[in-house]
Amino acid sequence: MVKIRPEEIKVLSNYIYNVSGITIDASKAYLLETRFGKLLDEEGCKSYSEFYHKAKSDPRRMLEKKIIDAITTNETLFFRDTSPFDLLKHKILPDLIDVRSGKGTRPGTTNLKIWSSACSTGQELYSIAIVIKELLGNNGNHKTTLMGTDLSNAAVAQASAGTYNKFEIERGLPREKLHRYFTPAGGNWKIKDEIRAMASFRHMNLMQPFVGIGKFDIIFCRNVAIYFTLQDRKKLFDKIADVLEPDGYLLIGSTESLTGICPRFIPKRHLRSVYYQLQ
């Protein structure tokens, strides 16, 4: 395997930061080798400098996309950590529907917009869709718009396809839900159309300005800011505050905190879960 030289670590880390916002500490240089070793071979590069120059000089930015796919972590599960989904089902959705159906232009109707801001391969957004389906059934009065975005094009493509292998399906997803919401597809499992149709996915870099995405009632931003610098985390949650409805809900990862990051949000507790709302 090609070894990365100390002076290359800095150059490549800077490049990765610029295209993805992900910061790689010099002590984690091994991460660069494990993540890019194969790509380096595929591209026929003899050194990380060559690799870097190739990525920078590609006008179609194909290599940049591959680098992003390789460096992003796609550790995700259906119903990863059940508490946010319980919170959604028992607290957030009922509360929002109560509030909105009272003051909507046509009383009794709602349109809730939900954003999975680092959706990875789609498990989080599909889990949300399943919760909504189970809570609201086919009640036509309550419309929902579910959007999933991710930095990795490969992840977005898999999310859109809605197909998962047995390892991806194995943990987190109860058997009964697997059989109700998925169909077997040649050794894999494919999300059923009724759930697939509820969600849409697209590529988005959270480091860039949020343009034309509108406002959301519920935002999931779990386990992504941990890869950013403190400065970038502050900017990210400030932008999130801008696109959250005044009475909307923000959910972050269970081991994340907004203390010292975004004073616009206040944490609130429901049973064992914490969620955030604007001041």
């Binding site: 269970s254 081991t255 994340e256 905190s257 203390t259 507790r269 914490v274």
Partner: peptide, 16 residues
């Protein structure tokens, strides 16, 4: 993750 989540969430509420 579970144990640190409990600690972090308790602290988050306490700080507020």
């Amino acid at each position: 993750e579970k144990t640190s989540a409990e600690t972090i969430q308790d602290l988050e509420i306490l700080v507020t």
